[in-house]
Nucleic acid binder design. Structure first.
Lengths: 185, 185
DNA sequence: TCATAAAAGCAAATTCTTTGCATTAATAGG
DNA sequence: CCTATTAATGCAAAGAATTTGCTTTTATGA
């Protein structure tokens, strides 16, 4: 019996994971993050604390696991007509979601965990979203900057400012997009 | 008696803070971060655990406090002759320091703490360093981009990649600098 | 010098974390 | 379909960390 087999839908491990994740989401919604503990989560999820300790190691890893799940985009970027407007629309929404209270908390949880894999997943999700926008632009015959350049010039500044203090204003986000769309090298 | 008064050099609070910080730095050097606990720190610092709990709240806040201290630049950016080479030299060193094992740990500790003030301080340190480079360039009569633009186009991409997976290569850093120095708008 | 207030020490109570062992559940092979 | 195997969970006791009330120390200003 491998872990993978066991995680198939309906397996016991999958059920435990689902109920624990659910318990975390609910507790995070109804109380301060600092008050959420593993015994509390275990109680709400109907499992014993030792199960959680053995599977996730500590609270930080569990929170990161839940957070990365919630950070997965649930839809394709909106088609606003052109590559530039697509990117503008997407970036404004991204900045808004990520700078919200819950957004900041999720990012912090992901970055605070020891395992770097979760953080990688996050930027991968973002990259994929931009890739969709880029492909769409190319299919229309438009010029569109390299995805890595968009990561550097739009995503990174937004995230940096969210993490290190500011909430980036809409105008600033729009400027970032305008700049990356206007450079040609 | 105010806290400020009490923190003056030689005061009791200042002595406790110094010995606790020192204990943290030493313990972080000699063992894995996951094994460092407050009772351990307290023992090494010669104070009781409750003192630490009362002053810092939890381990995360204490580690953030120590980390932000260590992230303060200890010297002015090197003068390499021109604004561009100054920035290149500074950015390469910054990327290297921040992507090192200890560098990553310190950043993570700062971002993981609830109090956002420490993270702000970090970006403020960075901004000041770039400001020195910018002022020097202006004094030479050179054109130099706005500091906020350098934050967006050089610092943010470096930090984003460190946090979300990659270690930015030297060439990439140099490209970021070249790009920000070549744009004129 | 003395009164005051803030911080630290101490220790008991509480809560969280770890761990060994028993039990349950899922899988592969017969 | 049944059974042996193995991974995961439950349980409970032991160990460690955290909280808290109270006392003592230390710095400050009158």
């Amino acid at each position: 019996m491998t872990v993978k087999e066991n995680l198939r839908p309906g397996g016991r491990s999958a059920r435990v994971q689902a109920s624990v994740h659910k318990a975390v989401r609910e507790l995070m919604a109804e109380m301060s993050r600092a008050d959420v503990t593993i015994p509390l989560i275990a109680g709400k999820a109907g499992v014993t604390p030792s199960t959680i300790y053995r599977r996730w190691g500590d609270l930080q890893e569990l929170l990161a696991d839940v957070a990365v799940d919630r950070l997965r985009p649930d839809m394709q970027p909106i088609d606003a007509g052109s590559g530039k407007t697509d990117l503008e629309t997407w970036a404004e929404q991204y900045a808004e979601e990520m700078s919200s209270g819950p957004g900041r908390e999720m990012i912090r949880d992901v970055l605070a965990a020891q395992a770097g894999a979760n953080a990688c997943k996050c930027s991968e999700y973002t990259r994929q979203q931009i890739d969709v926008i880029a492909e769409r632009a190319k299919a229309r015959g438009e010029a569109f900057p390299d995805v890595e350049r968009v990561m550097d010039q739009v995503v990174a500044p937004i995230m940096y400012r969210i993490l290190f203090g500011d909430v980036p204003a809409t105008k600033r986000v729009r400027d970032l997009v305008a700049r990356v769309m206007s450079t040609t090298d």
